[in-house]
Amino acid sequence: MFINWSQGEINLKIVYYGAGMSGKTTNLQFIYARTPQKLRSQLISLKTHQDRTLLFDFLQLEVGQVANLKPKFKLYTVPGQVYYDTSRRLILQGADGVVFVVDSQADRMDDNAELWRSMERHLVELGYDLKTFPIVVQINKRDVPNTLSIPEIRRRLPIKGYPTFEAVAIKGYGVFDTLKASMSGVIAAAHQAV
């Protein structure tokens, strides 16, 4: 969280975290395309192996103000390949919330689990309290063959207790439900902090 007093804004950072090709970039591209141009910044895109790191920010006027400050959300994706650990840690620095994007395909569960563990490790090392930090889970790619059932995914990943949304991000299903839940969690935490 960063308060820009001169602009009357509170900057809040949400990081889309998850395995490579799980759909993080697709989420951000969908959100970016549907955010009014006058409310959003340029989309910054950095190429990494297999996917891209994206970031942009936008003013969110519907969620109300926090201590008379306008919330400005900054959305980031992390590169999902295992070896981009320094990059993920840098991106998580200063995060106010995380959307963890799960790839529903059976053969991706080990990757999902590894990225979940890395997220928890980074958050703890950065001083976050996992009991209170706003994490929202998106179970993506519900439309592709070879997906596991939701109960099976819940059994395989430690996502119990977190707000969870099914999604087909490539078609936009569940994208804004997930984002709104994350923004609500982040705003609630900001109200407590400010």
Partner: peptide
């Protein structure tokens, strides 16, 4: 240059060097 782009690029290069 925007700082975030440069800092993320630096982290990416470091990760790929160590991979």
């Amino acid at each position: 240059a925007e700082p975030e782009g440069l800092l993320l690029e630096a982290a990416r290069q470091r990760d790929e060097l160590m991979a």
